[in-house]
Amino acid sequence: MKTSALTGKVKTDVEIKASPEQFHDMFTNKPHHLHHTCKDKVQGCDLHEGEWGNVGTIVNWSYVHDGKAKKAKEVIEAIDPDKNLLTFRVLEGDLMEEYKSFRITLQVSPKSDGNGSIAQWTMEYEKLHEGINHPETLLQLAVDISKDIDAHLTKPN
């Protein structure tokens, strides 16, 4: 039996100056503030159900990807403050027009030299059919958002 070419995983590491805790906190407890730091990429993040920072919470994202306004409804599947880890699963929205399933994990770790952190983004997915591209441009969007947030978190007051 052949494994499906429809499932995949892409990941990237982004070097940031912010602490793992600061960066993790922004995505876990304050995602509704992201549009202040990168309004050209994130238009909004609204609470649909639950409370910020809790597993099971459902959020609605409005964002720009490949020059187009997009939407996503996501559930927080996992939060591990000790590992600065957060996992979202996409429930509805534009991504579900191309993917059967889509999960995004963000884990932030301190750099070995003690200067800054590494934000690792992992996207696991199952495409609806062979003609759909791997989500490299979405991974690049995560990199760009990470850099914007890092600049916001580390700018002098």
Score class of each variant (00 low, 15 high):
30 K>I: 00
22 Q>C: 10
73 K>E: 07
111 K>F: 09
133 N>Y: 11
69 A>R: 05
55 V>C: 02
71 K>F: 12
62 S>Q: 14
50 G>Q: 07
33 H>F: 02
15 E>C: 07
32 H>I: 02
125 Y>M: 04
106 L>R: 02
73 K>D: 08
103 R>L: 08
60 N>T: 11
135 P>S: 02
87 T>M: 07
12 T>D: 03
43 Q>T: 02
42 V>P: 01
32 H>A: 04
118 I>A: 00
47 L>Q: 00
78 A>R: 06
122 T>G: 04
39 K>W: 11
81 P>C: 05
142 A>C: 15
32 H>P: 00
133 N>C: 06
118 I>R: 01
9 K>C: 15
150 D>Q: 12
99 Y>S: 01
141 L>S: 01
152 H>A: 09
147 K>H: 13
13 D>S: 15
87 T>V: 13
2 K>N: 11
103 R>D: 09
157 N>V: 12
92 E>G: 13
74 E>C: 04
114 G>W: 02
25 D>S: 15
102 F>T: 07
146 S>C: 03
118 I>C: 04
137 T>R: 12
37 T>F: 14
139 L>V: 12
135 P>M: 05
64 V>Y: 11
142 A>K: 15
85 L>S: 12
53 G>S: 01
57 T>P: 11
75 V>K: 15
122 T>D: 06
10 V>K: 05
43 Q>V: 06
76 I>T: 05
97 E>A: 14
15 E>I: 07
65 H>W: 15
134 H>V: 09
112 S>I: 07
100 K>P: 04
87 T>W: 08
157 N>P: 10
12 T>H: 03
50 G>F: 03
104 I>T: 13
87 T>S: 12
93 G>S: 10
43 Q>H: 09
136 E>D: 12
34 L>D: 03
115 N>I: 02
13 D>W: 13
88 F>V: 02
30 K>G: 04
39 K>C: 08
82 D>T: 10
148 D>V: 04
36 H>W: 04
114 G>F: 07
132 I>W: 06
107 Q>R: 14
98 E>R: 07
20 P>Y: 00
67 G>L: 04
53 G>W: 02
150 D>P: 12
144 D>L: 02
156 P>E: 15
135 P>N: 09
86 L>D: 06
134 H>S: 11
128 L>W: 13
78 A>W: 09
111 K>P: 05
113 D>E: 01
126 E>M: 00
150 D>F: 12
8 G>Y: 14
14 V>S: 00
116 G>C: 03
137 T>M: 04
134 H>E: 14
33 H>P: 01
81 P>V: 11
